[in-house]
């Protein structure tokens, strides 16, 4: 379940980046989505020991929160609803919720633009 949540979060931020990216014509193939998602997942595995367990718990809670908002797990809902849940957490008064979303936003944004500038990138 966690892998699916991380992947869905990464995809959401690539969607957001594409929506803002006028230069690429807002198009990207599945390969770019996957490269970003894989980078984010690898980085999440590299978190220091004392941060990794709370991070994984937060990922489970985030996925379950989809039930409260939309009646389905976060990774099972359509992209537009995912973005709404991300916004809710990003604007939450609870710092841990904001930080969780921020973590993905930072990594996915970095990976998206790194991939985009990579001359070998194939879409």
């Amino acid at each position: 379940m966690i892998d699916a949540t991380l992947s869905a979060l990464s995809y959401s931020f690539v969607h957001l980046a594409l929506a803002r990216d006028e230069v690429t014509g807002r198009q990207a193939g599945a390969a770019r989505f996957n490269r970003v998602a894989r980078f984010v997942a690898r980085q999440a595995d590299r978190l220091p020991d004392h941060l990794r367990p709370p991070f994984r718990v937060a990922a489970v809670v985030f996925d379950l929160a989809g039930f409260i908002h939309f009646g389905r797990l976060f990774h099972q809902v359509e992209p537009e609803r995912r973005l709404r849940q991300i916004e809710l957490w990003a604007d939450s008064p609870i710092r841990a919720m904001r930080e969780f979303v921020r973590f993905f936003e930072s990594l996915a944004t970095l990976a998206y633009y790194a991939d985009r500038t990579d001359a070998h990138s194939q879409d």
Binding site: E22, S106, L110
Partner: peptide, 17 residues
């Protein structure tokens, strides 16, 4: 670099575009 500028600009999401 573009990736690092974009990363820093996530603090100002309205200007990231």
């Amino acid at each position: 670099s573009l990736p690092y500028l974009a990363l820093a600009m996530t603090d100002h999401p309205n200007h990231l575009a």
